[in-house]
């Protein structure tokens, strides 16, 4: 049976009717049209569904929509402002850190979470920070370069 949940997504309040077996990924994509959050493995292996929930990155495929009741979510759509792309997004474009692009939203949100906490990470800290996100184009070096360039 559907139930109404209330949550904040990208600083906007939402009320959404969700099924108990609906994941946060599916709710974002199919109920709200926020398709920047990608659906990859759906078992927590790939990190392409990463969103930031109450300040920490989570795999939204392993969060039930009902669990998100009352929570604050940031998706990739929340990073761009009227001033344009977020500095991390710009760095990904400038450094060639995007190949097919499927991992990019998750990579950027994991990077954002790292940089918010640690504005000048070492290469090792960057690699650890994005270690829950797979890039099947294997373009990790440019992603690390991009995150490093924002840090400086």
């Amino acid at each position: 049976m559907k139930r109404i949940i209330q949550l904040t997504i990208n600083d906007k309040e939402y009320e959404v009717a969700v099924e108990p077996n609906q994941t946060l990924t599916d709710m974002l994509r199919y109920e709200l049209g926020l398709t920047g959050t990608k659906k990859g493995c759906e078992v927590g292996d790939c990190g392409s569904c990463t969103v930031i929930m109450d300040g920490i990155p989570v795999n939204s495929c392993l969060v039930l929509a009902m669990q998100a009741n009352g929570r604050k979510i940031t998706t990739i759509e929340g990073l761009e402002t009227e001033k344009g792309m977020h500095p991390i997004q710009k760095a990904f474009v400038e450094k060639g850190a995007i190949q097919c692009g499927f991992c990019t939203p998750g990579m950027i949100l994991s990077s954002k979470s790292l940089l918010d906490k640690n504005p000048n990470p070492t290469e090792e800290e960057i690699r650890a920070g994005i270690s829950g996100n797979l890039c099947r184009c294997t373009g990790y070096q440019k992603i690390v370069d991009a995150v490093k360039s924002v840090g400086k």
Partner: peptide, 9 residues
């Protein structure tokens, strides 16, 4: 254990 996201959850 696991990955950063999974350790958060």
């Amino acid at each position: 254990a696991a990955s950063p996201q999974l350790r958060n959850q």
